[in-house]
Design a protein around this nucleic acid. Structure first.
Lengths: 224, 224
DNA sequence: CTATAACCGGAGTGATTCGCTCCGCAAGTT
DNA sequence: AACTTGCGGAGCGAATCACTCCGGTTATAG
């Protein structure tokens, strides 16, 4: 074999484990918050602690990678949404994709993430993409007129976790996890329908400031 | 004074502290999940650890009291909602009251609560009250026809916590807490509007099973 | 088959945090 | 002043944390 990919006998298993780790980290982070332990993450992924530490030198490094993946997922979902013809469906599918990924699971560790220049660029791009999605929906008059970009972000964060799902998963009730996921989808559908332009009454209070997001992330710019 | 109430020189301070403790416990539980420490709760309430343990013999006893308060609040809110003339306003105000109380903050400790006969009675009553609220809204044709009692419960649980609010509170950014609370209200208004009967399309998936709730609470019946 | 390289799992380690106790002190009452 | 009641937090053993280290296992090469 002259392939440049395979570098070891158990490379395939290693890649599977890596994916399982990142997925498990989201779930455990959602269930346990910022105190989520590496032991719990490794156990949820079905791998040993040693395997986790071979890939990520520290817990922070794993979380950093998770934050990067989350931003990538956000941007990809937004691009797919903009590629759709229907402005409403584009926005709705974007919200659904972010929720399904579990975008809200990293809220508890937001303050511990180092914002590198690379991350900052991705974050800026995510702001632009969401603004474009919202503007397009407003122009098509399918989105409630006083809904802002921040409202959408908060809605995604609010639904980015499911307390019922988290707890059932931790209890090991895998039989109910699917039902809980379906129920979560239902409630999300209800909330998204509340964004439609058919509701005449204005939203209460002032439009929310984006400081509700910017102030929650660390701003020390390390190196990429 | 022949009053039977005052039993000591600092009784008033003690009552204030007790209220502050219960309030702080909800906030810390929301922010830290099931691993919330008594030290964090006492600090958030502005009292010493000793004062906490004089009122509650163990951490579990405090959580137990919190669960009882939560059920009481639920039932009182439901009764107020039924007392309103407008079926829609009655349901909406019930949901808002439960969300504001932070009903969702005890989801992480649901599995650790002992269900006494007293609690079970209150829980049964809460089921009846919510069913009545929902049935009345359905009969008035103001509630989306395929919305069930479980959907409403999940919506309340979903909004019973605000990740942004929790994190800002933990960071001590009291200046932004008010703004975050207002923003949370906005998003809740959006979601509740999604419950209105004006949405013709059916909800996805099967109606959710109430096992999503019953299976998450411990069932060992201790004594009241 | 054997040898070897790559990767695995988890027991062990020092440091930290946990729930909880105990006690000296402050604040009211008489 | 004497006394009662509640206060705060230092300190304790136990539990848990992030992380290291190494003997075992699996897949390929010869």
């Amino acid at each position: 074999m002259t392939e440049s990919k395979r570098r070891g006998p158990r490379q395939a298993e290693a890649e599977r484990n890596d994916r399982a780790l990142l997925r498990a980290a989201r779930h455990v982070l959602a269930a346990d918050g910022e105190h989520a332990s590496v032991a719990a993450i490794a156990a949820a992924a079905g791998v040993g602690i040693g395997s986790l530490y071979r890939r990520y030198r520290t817990k922070e490094e794993l979380f950093q990678r998770l934050a990067e993946l989350s931003l990538d997922n956000w941007n990809q979902a937004a691009e797919r949404g903009l590629a759709e013809d229907d402005p409403w469906e584009g926005l709705a599918s974007f919200v659904a994709a972010c929720v399904e990924f579990g975008q809200g699971s990293l809220a508890p560790i937001a303050g511990t993430i180092k914002v590198t220049k690379e991350m900052q660029a991705k974050s800026d791009r995510s702001d632009e993409l969401l603004a474009a999605l919202v503007a397009r929906a407003h122009q098509a008059r399918v989105l409630r007129p006083d809904v802002t970009v921040v409202d959408i972000s908060l809605l995604i964060e609010q639904f980015g976790r499911s307390p019922a799902l988290d707890q059932l998963r931790k209890q090991g009730r895998e039989d109910l996890v699917e039902a809980a996921a379906g129920a979560h989808q239902r409630v999300l559908t209800i909330a998204v329908d509340g964004l439609r332009a058919c509701h005449p009454r204005p939203l209460p209070g002032d439009p929310p400031s984006d400081r509700l997001f910017t102030e929650r992330w660390a701003h020390e710019t390390g190196q990429a």
